[in-house]
């Protein structure tokens, strides 16, 4: 059973992502949710999701750091990480590449793109 983790401190964005991706539950995909970076990292280590939608600006631990831990320290290559940012700054994008994110999306994102991405990564 494939797992998708949603990490965002904004409840509405979490809800949006959940609702966007809930159709995939028919395809036997489990949606996991974390409310901050630290919780997200724990969840990644425990559950090993195939796909993570990771917000950048979060309390406790930023998305960059989570990504860095996962990709550069834990070397979890099978976790596909999509960084979500609202800043739209060049700096963020470069930083995203540095910490090893697989993809980078700027808010507001198109829900359809999220679904497509998920389908692609999970091979649905």
């Amino acid at each position: 059973m494939a797992k998708i983790l949603i990490v965002d401190d904004e409840p509405h964005i979490r809800l949006l992502l959940e609702q966007t991706l809930e159709d995939l539950e028919d395809d036997d995909v489990e949606l996991l949710v974390a409310e901050d970076g630290a919780e997200g990292l724990d969840c990644i280590i425990d559950e090993m999701p195939e796909l993570v939608f990771l917000d950048v600006m979060m309390p406790k631990m930023s998305g960059f750091e989570v990504c860095h831990r996962v990709k550069n320290e834990l070397k979890l290559k099978n976790v596909y990480i999509v960084l979500l940012t609202a800043k739209g700054q060049e700096f963020d994008k470069l930083k995203g590449q540095e910490v090893g994110a697989d993809m980078y999306m700027t808010k507001p994102f198109n829900p359809d793109e999220i679904v497509e991405k998920a389908q692609e990564v999970l091979g649905l």
């Binding site: 904004e10 509405h12 964005i13 809800l15 949006l16 966007t20 609202a86 800043k87 739209g88 700027t106 808010k107 507001p108 994102f109 198109n110 829900p111």
Partner: peptide, 9 residues
């Protein structure tokens, strides 16, 4: 952008 994400999404 954050609220816009919710609104548009």
């Amino acid at each position: 952008r954050t609220p816009l994400t919710s609104i548009l999404g």
